[in-house]
Design a protein around this nucleic acid. Structure first.
Lengths: 133, 133
DNA sequence: TCTATCGTTGACATCCATGTCAAGGTCCAG
DNA sequence: CTGGACCTTGACATGGATGTCAACGATAGA
């Protein structure tokens, strides 16, 4: 498929797809006329890239972890240098911390929303909580 | 406490604390001489801000959700406008998606690391998995 | 064939979280 | 009273993910 279609299917833009390519995250083939040609599997890959990006990882890191996530459980011995493994370890730690922080705060917001909702539902009654309305 | 101490205790910098203030995330008092004076509770608040920032939320959003997270379960009726509630709802959704994405990818990386480790431990044996070494 | 739509590259603009630097005020210790 | 450590404000710089625009080539449909 061409760049426009991929952009639509991944909710991104041609600009971004070129950017990801420039950052080495994807490497589409080229048609005879110079147009970029994207294979089907790149849809998922781009979605994953966008997810990771949105999750706060920089392209530099994404580039490193993408090869580990190839669908057909292919293990890439070649590029598994010790430093890279270390990077990955520490990156998973960072991700875990991120997840915890997000979860904590999301739950707090949820709780807040619950309370506020609970307050507006019964026709005006200040201070609920332990008293059964 | 003054800005330097808070910076040290939150692993940030004075520059950042001024920035957070400028973005309306914190509002320290002032000493007679103009120095910023930070109350103890701001340590936690700044840590929370940094966590959320690191988790990918922009200051604009953080500013909205912080008031809901005040320690002494104070409910802020005043600013609970319907739009704000809607914002919070959709933001928790975004956070949930982020969490899922992060978790998925972190687990994938972990799995990869497991496999790679498992491979290097026993003295060179190609393709393990279902065959008991 | 004309024109709209899509593609190409390259450059420049923007937003956001930060860094850095300058010029100056405050304060304490020697 | 002087030097150093800390504070102030303000400005400018930077890096990363994006937007936008210009100038041009390719393609397909009326």
């Amino acid at each position: 498929m061409r760049i426009g279609e991929l952009a639509r299917r991944t909710e991104s833009t041609p600009r971004l797809l070129r950017y990801y390519e420039q950052q080495g995250l994807i490497t589409p083939r080229r048609e005879a006329n110079g147009y970029r040609a994207y294979d089907e599997y790149l849809v998922d890959r781009v979605l994953q890239i966008r997810g990771l990006l949105d999750a706060g990882l920089p392209t530099r890191i994404i580039k490193q972890i993408l090869p580990c996530l190839d669908a057909p459980r292919t293990i890439h011995f070649a590029d598994a240098t010790p430093e890279m493994l270390a990077t990955l370890e520490s990156e998973t730690d960072r991700m875990t911390r991120r997840i915890l922080c997000l979860t904590r705060n999301r739950d707090a917001i949820r709780e807040y929303l619950e309370v506020v909702k609970g307050l507006s539902e019964p026709p005006l009654e200040v201070q609920r909580s332990h008293s059964a309305a």
